[in-house]
Design a protein around this nucleic acid. Structure first.
Lengths: 126, 126
DNA sequence: CTGAATCCGCGGGGATACTG
DNA sequence: CAGTATCCCCGCGGATTCAG
């Protein structure tokens, strides 16, 4: 990011646009369900119903909603097979896979520090 | 994570506990404000009011709420100076700094793929 | 200055039903 | 099976106030 003073100059409208776009994307992506969906997809190609089974606790609505959002941002590819019954498959795009790497890092972090965190909680609430 | 079949065996209650704890931590951490706060802190030590200025758009309530949560999980250290007026400083702990590395990765990802994403959006909504 | 508590509106998100 | 639409309620989160 760039310092406020520089960014706020009127001639740098493009920088501000990029910043606000980055913030928007960050807000889209930094939410539980989106990250869990990305993690669930991994390198695989999954159908809608498979994803719903895979991402534990996600509702029909949240799944479609987040999939649309991810598709809109070009993180997942949506392939519709014009059969009956319909069959729709989702796959991570290259940007999506790149993001997944960071989600993996978070998951790794979570497991690595499980002990620390459990201990901290014990210390916190006596 | 471990496959459902194995995990659901009754004798593996401890594995399930670890999994559910991991999920809980993930849910705590995978939210916009928590990540923005962690990113804002970085290597610095900041006061409450400084954090509120730094994390753009965060409300008083959300800031305290997330700081409590982060403190409870041992990601931030809260140092109270018994002065008047009071002065409270927040710093990332070692686990917190480790997580920040992954948040940095997300931020890097965001900027790296800004173009891709903007293009994808243009393609999506005609 | 920090933080807890209270009030309250709005929207997230679940359940359900209906279309293709 | 996948997706959209509708209803509806609970709780997130903002604004404000009071305390230390």
């Amino acid at each position: 990011m760039v310092t406020k003073q520089i960014r706020d100059l009127p001639e740098n409208a493009d920088l501000r646009r990029a910043d606000s776009l980055a913030r928007e994307i960050f807000s889209d992506v930094a939410n539980k369900w989106a990250l869990l969906i990305i993690e669930a997809l991994g390198e695989r190609t999954l159908r809608f119903s498979e994803l719903r089974d895979e991402v534990e606790g996600v509702s029909h609505k949240m799944l479609t909603q987040n999939l649309r959002m991810l598709e809109r941002n070009g993180l997942v590819d949506r392939k519709v097979h014009p059969t009956v019954p319909p069959k729709v498959e989702y796959t991570l795009t290259e940007p999506g896979r790149a993001l997944r790497a960071t989600v993996d890092a978070i998951c790794g972090w979570t497991h690595q520090y499980l002990g620390h965190i459990e201990a901290a909680r014990g210390r916190f609430g006596p």
